[in-house]
Design a protein around this nucleic acid. Structure first.
Lengths: 315, 315
DNA sequence: CTCAGCGGGAGGTCCCCTCAC
DNA sequence: GTGAGGGGACCTCCCGCTGAG
C-alpha cells in the first residue's frame, strides 16, 4: 500500500541555486522584492504562474491610472510617461473605471490563496459527509475488513469525510472551479479544462491536503482528505505573516517618503558575539514591548511599530 | 519666455483615488506590495510599463526554475504545479540556464533607474562641453546680448553645458539608447523608435533634468541641462531608500520563515497621545541605537536591525 | 505514464500611419 | 497638441491533439 505525499524539499533551496538566482537578478532591491514575492505566492501560496503575472500587470495598470488622474486625465501625456500607446492607456483607464464603478476587483492575488484550494476541505465535507460510525469507504465489493484496512492506512487526524474515487474527485474539483469563477466578471472567467484540473489536483496532492491511496484491494486510485483546512502547515502561516508584515512595513515607509509627521524609519548595522546573540534579541523584544507599553494610551492615536533583526547579508 | 517644467503633483494622490485603488486590489497584502512597488519604480524611478512587467515575469520564471530544480528537474511536475505547459517550462528553464551560463542577466529593473535617464547628464557634458567663459548658446544669428538673455533665463545651478536644439537633443537621446542596448544580449535588444524617443524626452522634461526653452528670439525650441545627475530630488532618494529597506526587511523575514537561528520579527500595536508622539519616537531611536551599541563587537557576526514606526492604517 | 512534437485562438506589447478638433 | 481610428509584427498564455519510448 503506497501513500503518495509529495510535500518535500519545498523550501530547500540549495546555496548553489540561490547564488545563481541572485546573479541573474543583479541584486537590485526592487527585483529582490519581486522575486521574494513570486516565491512566496507561487511556491507557498499555490498561485498559478498566470495569476502572479496578472496581479503584477494590475499593479502596473493602477500606477498608470493614478498618473492619468494626476496629469489631468491626459491620455497622451500618460502614455509618453510610461511608453504605452494612447489606445492602450485608454483601454486600461476604462477597465479600471469600470471596475471601480461596478465594485468589482481586477485580476489580483485577492485571496491569500486560490479559492479552489482553500475551499476544498469545506466543500468535500459538505458534499461527501461521513457519519461517526460509517466507513469512509463506499466502494462495492469489499468486505468490512478490507474497508477498515484501507481506512487504517490513513494518517492520523484525518477528518471524517468519504474517500473518493477518481471520478468523484475530478467532479469535486470542477465544482470548486465553477464556484471560484462565479463571482468574477465575465471577462475574467476562465473555462474549465483538463490542464486546469490536473494543476489543481496536483496542487492538492503536493500540499498534502489530499492524499492518493493506491491499494492492492481495489484497482482504481482513491483519494482521501487529510485536513480540515488547506495548508495548516506552520511554514505556510509564516509565509503569510511575512507578506503581511512586508506590506505594512512598505506602507509605513511610504508615509516616510511623503515626509508625514510621526513616522520614523531606521536601520541599525552592527556585529555581535554569537554567544550573546540570543540574549540581545530577547532584550530587544522586552525593550520594545516596554517602550510601546510606556506610551500606550487607550483611545489614543493608532500607532504601529514593526521590526526585524537577523543576519546582515548585504553591505 | 516660457520655461516648461512639468514636475508637479507628482506624489499628490487624492484620497479619493487612494480609496478607489485600495478597493480594486481588495487590500490583499501581496497586491499592496506589488502596487507600492509599481508606483515606486514606474512613477518615481521612471521605468517603462513594459520594463516592470518584464521584471515581474522574470521573478515568476525564477520561481518556476527553482521549483524545477527542487523537483528533480521534472518538467511535467513543475508545469502542473504552476499551470504552465511543459513546452513553456522547458523554454523558461533553458532561458535561465543560458543566462546563468553566459553570466548575463534577465530582463529586470537591474539599475535603480533606466540607463538612458541616469547617463544623460554625463553624456551631455561629455559631448557638448562648454568652457568657463563660453556662451552656452551656439546658434548662429544672435547677438551676444541675445545669447546672454537666453542663458539668464536658466534656473540657477545649471551645469556648464551647451544648450541644444531639437535635432542635437534627439541625437543625444538616440546615442543614449544605443549605449543602453549595447550590453544587452541580442534577444533583449529593443530597436530605437520615435515612440521610444518621445518617451525618453518626456521623462527627462517631466523629471526636470532637462528643460525646454521657447524663446521668442529663436523660432525653434531649445533644450538645456539643469542638473549634474538625474533625479537629485530628495523624494526620489527616499523612494530608493524605501525599496532598499523593504528588500532587506523581506530578506530577514525569509530567514525567519526558514526558522533560522538568531532571527527575530516583531510588531507592536499601540495607541498614543499625539502630544507625546515625537517624544516617543525620539526615545525609540535612542533606545535602539543604545541597544545596538551595547552588543556591538568588532569582528563579530554581522547583524542587521530594521524598524519602522508610524500610523496604523489597517487592523 | 512520461516525454516529445504539432496545431490553433485570444490577447497583449510593440511599431507605424492618417484624420478631425 | 489632443483624441480617435486604421493597419501589422511578434510574443505569450491558454487550449487541444497525436505519437514514441
Amino acid at each position: 500500500m503506497v501513500v503518495m505525499n509529495v510535500v518535500s524539499q519545498q523550501s530547500e533551496i540549495t546555496s548553489q541555486l540561490k547564488d545563481d538566482l541572485s546573479r541573474v537578478v543583479d541584486n537590485s532591491p526592487a527585483d529582490w522584492i519581486l522575486l521574494h514575492l513570486a516565491m512566496g505566492t507561487m511556491k507557498m501560496g499555490g498561485h498559478r504562474y498566470g495569476a502572479f503575472l496578472d496581479a503584477a500587470t494590475t499593479a502596473a495598470k493602477l500606477a498608470i491610472y493614478s498618473t492619468f488622474i494626476e496629469q489631468g486625465e491626459n491620455i497622451r501625456k500618460t502614455g509618453f510617461l510610461y511608453h504605452v500607446e494612447p489606445k492602450r492607456v485608454k483601454a486600461i483607464v476604462k477597465e479600471i473605471q469600470d471596475a471601480i464603478a461596478e465594485g468589482q476587483s481586477l485580476k489580483a492575488l485577492n485571496d491569500k490563496e486560490p479559492f479552489y484550494l482553500i475551499a476544498l476541505p469545506f466543500l468535500w465535507q459538505e458534499r461527501f459527509p461521513c457519519g461517526e460510525h460509517e466507513s469512509r469507504v463506499r466502494l462495492q465489493g469489499l468486505t468490512p475488513g478490507e474497508r477498515r484496512s484501507i481506512e487504517d492506512s490513513l494518517p492520523p487526524g484525518c477528518p471524517k469525510a468519504r474517500i473518493l474515487d477518481q471520478v468523484e474527485f475530478n467532479e469535486l474539483i470542477e465544482v470548486l472551479h465553477e464556484l471560484s469563477q462565479e463571482e468574477l466578471p465575465e471577462s475574467q472567467q476562465m473555462p474549465f479544462s483538463e490542464a486546469l484540473m490536473l494543476h489543481i489536483k496536483f496542487r492538492l496532492l503536493h500540499s498534502g491536503t489530499v492524499i492518493q491511496i493506491d491499494s492492492p484491494l481495489v484497482d482504481i486510485p482513491l483519494f482521501a482528505l487529510t485536513t480540515e483546512s488547506y495548508s495548516p502547515k506552520e511554514e505556510r502561516e509564516r509565509v503569510f505573516a511575512m507578506i503581511d508584515d512586508v506590506a505594512r512595513y512598505f506602507s509605513i515607509l511610504q508615509a516616510w517618503v511623503r515626509r508625514e509627521e510621526g513616522v520614523m524609519r531606521g536601520v541599525e548595522v552592527f556585529d555581535i558575539d554569537l554567544g550573546r546573540r540570543q540574549e540581545a534579541l530577547d532584550e530587544l523584544d522586552v525593550l520594545l514591548r516596554a517602550w510601546a507599553d510606556k506610551y500606550h494610551q487607550d483611545g489614543g492615536y493608532p500607532m504601529l511599530l514593526q521590526f526585524a533583526a537577523g543576519t546582515r547579508e548585504f553591505d
